[in-house]
Design a protein around this nucleic acid. Sequence first.
DNA 1: GCACAGACTGGCAAGCCATC
DNA 2: GATGGCTTGCCAGTCTGTGC
Length: 277
Amino acid sequence: MITSTFRHLPGVGAAFEERLWRGGCLTWQDAAARGDIPCRKHEAGTFARGITDSHERLEAGDAAWFGQRLGAADQWRLFAAFRHQVAYVDIETTGLGWPESHITTIALWDGFQLRTYRHGDNLETFADDIRDYKLLVTFNGRGFDAPFIEQTFRQKLDMAHLDLRWVLKPLGYSGGLKRVEQAFGLDRGNLAGVDGYTAVLLWHHWRNSGDDRALETLLAYNAEDVLTLEPLAVHAYNAHLAGLPVLPEHPLPQCLRAENPFRASAEVLRKVGVRAV
DNA sequence: GCACAGACTGGCAAGCCATC
DNA sequence: GATGGCTTGCCAGTCTGTGC
């Protein structure tokens, strides 16, 4: 899809891009081969340079370059091209505000390996690990997770960022992550009814009681969030693709949520006030 | 419960293009 | 050449709704 995208070029909006596609100009290669791109004269040079730059940046694996030039709702276009270098990330914290709150746990899923990070243990290693990825996938991460991470580690997350909240919204999926999951029929098992505030309670319960089941339940919740992001991203990609006036490439195969290696304790959840659903 | 990032909206300017 | 319609980009103000 990325080589059929023109929206990241200066002077190209939705209407112009659609005109290009309908005119048979489906890829950068088509655009480079044709001399009759119907763009404004003063932008013809810019457009041609943009096509050349796009080829070079894609070859260099520079997802950030495309990410900076695409709007939040169009970041899905990067997904297939950079799927092998995706980090699905979610954080839990002790509250909403900075700096009175801090990160308690982070979960990172890359499609193969699930890693978790804990305050007071290995949290700092996240800052190094995340550098290995070119595309960050979150839910509402543009407004919450990314700024929190950047402030905590004093490190800019300069990779492309696919925030599923804004990518799913135009498809009719609004609301929080849990509501979106329900719309997709994804079942959370005994983690249903657990929300971010429960994660705060689980952290404090573990710190105060030393009950390791509380920590594992928190990690189970944190892991569940990131494992869900992958099938949601695949669905969002395919749905956006299907909504295009032309279909420049095949949809991605369906993706199932990977198995969560952590187990939530029903007893601990009862103790922190979560009622079984 | 609330902060805040990002979306949304409307208005405006500028350029292109077809028509007269 | 003048005009009007269309498109894009930019800006500012407002609104939305999610995170924990």
